[in-house]
Simulated assay, not measured.
Amino acid sequence: MEISDPILVDRPADRVARITLNRPEKRNAMSNALRTQMFAALEAADRDPGVSVVILRGAGSCFSAGYDLSSDVRDEQPWYSAGGLGNWPRHVTEGCFRIWDMAKPVIGQVHGYCLAGGTELAASCDLLYVAEDAMIGYPVVRSISPPDNQFYPWLIGMRRAMEMMLTGDTISGAEAAEYGFANRAVPLADLEPMVLDMASRVAKIPTDVQQINKRAVHRQMEAMGIRAGIRAGTELQALSAMTESAKAFYANVRNDGLTSALSARDEKFGDYRTKAE
Rank of each mutant, 00 (worst) to 15 (best):
K26H: 09
A232E: 14
G108L: 02
V16K: 01
V141S: 06
I3W: 15
S81Q: 07
D169H: 12
R74F: 15
A189C: 08
E192Q: 14
L188Y: 14
D14K: 12
I171H: 07
L166F: 13
E267G: 00
M135P: 01
A174N: 01
L191T: 03
R227K: 09
A40C: 03
W100A: 03
A131M: 06
G83A: 15
R18S: 01
L166D: 13
I19Y: 08
R215L: 11
A246C: 14
G233I: 00
V202M: 06
Y129C: 04
K268L: 04
R201H: 15
I171P: 03
A65L: 09
S143H: 15
E76G: 13
I107K: 10
H91A: 15
R160L: 09
K247N: 02
A40P: 00
G118D: 08
E235C: 07
M162C: 01
P78S: 08
M224K: 08
H111V: 03
I3T: 15
W154H: 12
N255E: 12
T207G: 00
S31Q: 01
A264G: 10
M194K: 03
L239D: 13
R23I: 00
P105V: 11
A203P: 00
I3L: 15
V141W: 07
A185T: 08
G229H: 14
R23T: 02
A246H: 03
E267Q: 10
R18C: 11
M221Q: 11
V141Y: 05
S200C: 08
D190A: 15
M38T: 09
G84P: 07
S70P: 06
R11D: 01
L8R: 14
G83Q: 13
T167L: 05
Q109Y: 10
V209T: 09
A251M: 10
S52N: 11
A103F: 02
A134T: 00
M221L: 10
A185Y: 04
P147C: 13
L196A: 11
L191F: 15
A41L: 05
